[in-house]
Design a binder for these strands. Structure first.
Length: 582
DNA sequence: GCCGTTTTCGGCCCGACTGTTTTCAGTCG
């Protein structure tokens, strides 16, 4: 892994974040006060900022950098130096003092900046390989304030680090978590159990599982938990807090709290960390102290039983978990401007459904029946088009034939409150052209278009291509705009601002694809689209009857992007929805 | 180094667990 200072050109936001994080750690090693946290916050600010800083800086200079939250004069000038020269002198000076591979080594659980400093001073540990070697040869256990157990723990952490490889999609984790919840709920001493953390906030990927339990007998609960068959390794376990690795490779925290503190604990362990920090600052300003046991005035507990009463005591309305990312929700709450989020029960239709006419598993009729059973009132059949030959993509003739089949089925379903709409997932070519003739597109109820190839064009080319598809007078929706597959394929390089502006101008809807590996467009793009007045659809992209339940993940993504029912066209009745389309 | 419903100076979130300690520093969330 090369150090960031070696990349002289094309400095990405990610590179900047990495350098700022390293500076935070290096300052911490030096024992410098407060600065580490300032650099951490600035790194988080850049991470959440989605304009390309290299471009913004070229255009607007240092001003573009100081607009980022938690970036002030000092760090802005560091970033500018990095963008211009590919290096930061202050970073290099720090790195010279303790020349270790900070980013790599800090991934080792239980190893922090202070330990790294000692390990370097005494043993010249610079890399993960150095650390492993030192631990294996017993050199760490004999250091002051280290011991046999520290050494074993480091080796175990390195092993896990190599084995796991990071976060998993919410969709792949949630079903397993629900099983775990059921198992724990069966303990007789447990009065409540719930997965908090990023799972409750419905973040698209999950790094670990936070299970919160209310019980008056924490020791007994912990014993039972540690005896569960899902557990692979115990990192640590105390009276109220236990940390384990599950057999599925994920880490899991169990916290047991007394029922009286349930609300405070639920709030605290739901996070996000940044939301909590901001909330505690609100508490301090009001002369309170907020922790996982309650809201306190001096030593006296004011509230703690429910989340609602805590927010209320802080002068705020309840904030939905999906909003708790410290991206303006506390400010919005204070002004009573929180969005009325689209609800999980709000969807009336699904506008992207594949069938056995192309690469789906099931017939149009079966998909329709499954959608009805899922409580929907309409679906659009959107099979692939001819460019996707491997799926048996439809040409104009096949589409017309399918429309006839849909007419027949709609007659059959007459009397039920359900309608099958005629649609297609039209392929967008390299230049933005479409592979279905306009005269046929005009006959569809819902025409979606999507990118399925040429993922590596330049930003300008990708952006122009998608906008050209939007400008077609028949294309109603762009499906899975960026084409990303989480953890496997990066998003195509798009100027999201330009795409959203074009969607607004052309009256094109953007899809929130609910498939857990896609979630495309993602939460922050939803927020931008909504802010620009662009309408969205939340679609399952179902390829089988079981897939309608995936809509939940799309709704979660829309909620995380502050979307309301009025922004989601398939939360509307079918007539109103159709009227909105081109 | 950042930031402002007390503030352009003086603050900066809070608690559990571990290991190596005889009272606490380091790490984590």
């Amino acid at each position: 892994m090369g150090l960031p200072i070696l990349r002289y050109y094309a400095m990405t936001n990610r590179d900047i974040v990495t350098v700022l994080r390293e500076m935070a750690a290096l300052l911490e090693m030096e024992g410098v006060a407060f600065k580490p946290r300032a650099y951490e916050k600035a790194a988080a600010g850049v991470e959440a900022w989605d304009t390309v800083l290299a471009d913004a800086y070229k255009r607007d200079g240092i001003k573009a950098l100081k607009g980022i939250p938690a970036v002030g004069r000092g760090i802005a000038s560091h970033i500018a130096e990095l963008l211009e020269k590919g290096r930061i002198k202050a970073y290099e000076d720090l790195h010279k003092k303790v020349p270790v591979n900070v980013t790599e080594l800090l991934q080792v659980e239980g190893v922090g900046p202070k330990m790294l400093r000692t390990l370097w001073e005494k043993l010249r540990v610079c890399t993960l390989a150095d650390l492993e070697m030192a631990a294996q040869t017993g050199k760490i256990g004999v250091l002051p304030r280290f011991g046999e157990k520290s050494e074993q723990r480091i080796l175990k952490s390195i092993e896990f680090l190599r084995a796991s490889g990071g976060r998993r999609t919410l969709g792949s984790v949630l079903p397993e978590v629900l099983v775990l919840e059921v198992d724990i709920r069966a303990f007789p001493e447990v009065s409540a159990v719930v997965a908090a953390g990023s799972i409750r906030r419905r973040k698209e990927t999950v790094g670990d599982i936070d299970i919160l339990v209310a019980s008056a007998k924490p020791k007994r609960v912990t014993e039972r938990f540690l005896a569960l068959p899902q557990i692979a390794h115990v990192y640590g376990s105390g009276d109220t807090k236990t940390n384990v690795r599950l057999k599925n490779g994920l880490d899991c925290d169990l916290r047991v709290v007394p029922p009286i503190s349930w609300g405070a604990a639920f709030q605290y362990f739901t996070g996000s960390k940044d939301h909590n920090v901001a909330l505690r600052e609100v508490a301090i300003k009001k002369g309170y102290k907020l922790n996982e046991y309650g809201l306190f005035k001096d030593q006296k507990m004011i509230v703690g039983k429910t989340e609602k009463e805590i927010y209320k005591a802080l002068g705020l309305p309840y904030i939905e978990p999906e909003l708790r990312e410290d991206t303006g929700e506390i400010e919005a709450a204070r002004k009573n401007h929180l969005p009325a989020l689209v609800e999980y029960s709000d969807l009336k239709g699904d506008l992207q459904v594949q069938t056995d006419w192309t690469d789906g598993e099931d017939s149009i009729e079966k998909m329709a029946e499954a959608a009805m059973a899922a409580g929907l009132e309409y679906i659009a059949i959107t099979d692939h088009t001819k460019s996707l030959a491997m799926t048996g993509g439809a040409d104009e003739k096949k589409l017309l034939r399918q429309m006839g089949e849909i007419d027949k089925l709609n007659k059959k379903f007459k009397g039920k409150k359900f309608k099958i709409l005629k649609g297609a997932e039209v392929n967008i070519g390299k230049d933005g052209s479409l592979d279905i003739d306009d005269r046929v597109l005009a006959q569809l109820d819902v025409a979606g278009a999507a990118v399925h190839s040429h993922f590596n064009l330049t930003r300008a080319a990708q952006t122009a291509r998608v906008i050209r598809a939007m400008e077609n007078p028949h294309i109603d929706i762009i499906f899975h705009l960026t084409g990303r597959i989480i953890g496997k394929r990066p998003a195509i390089d798009l100027d999201i601002g330009a795409v959203i502006a074009a969607a607004k101008r052309t009256g094109t809807v953007l899809e929130v694809n609910a498939y857990p590996d896609r979630l495309d467009i993602k939460d922050e793009h939803v927020r931008k689209a909504v802010a620009s007045g662009v309408k969205l659809s939340i679609d399952s992209d179902a390829h089988a009857i079981a897939h309608f339940k995936l809509l939940e993940y799309g709704i979660a993504t829309a909620r995380r992007g502050w979307a309301e029912k009025k922004d989601i066209i398939n939360a509307w009745p079918v007539e109103k929805m159709l009227k909105m389309l081109k």
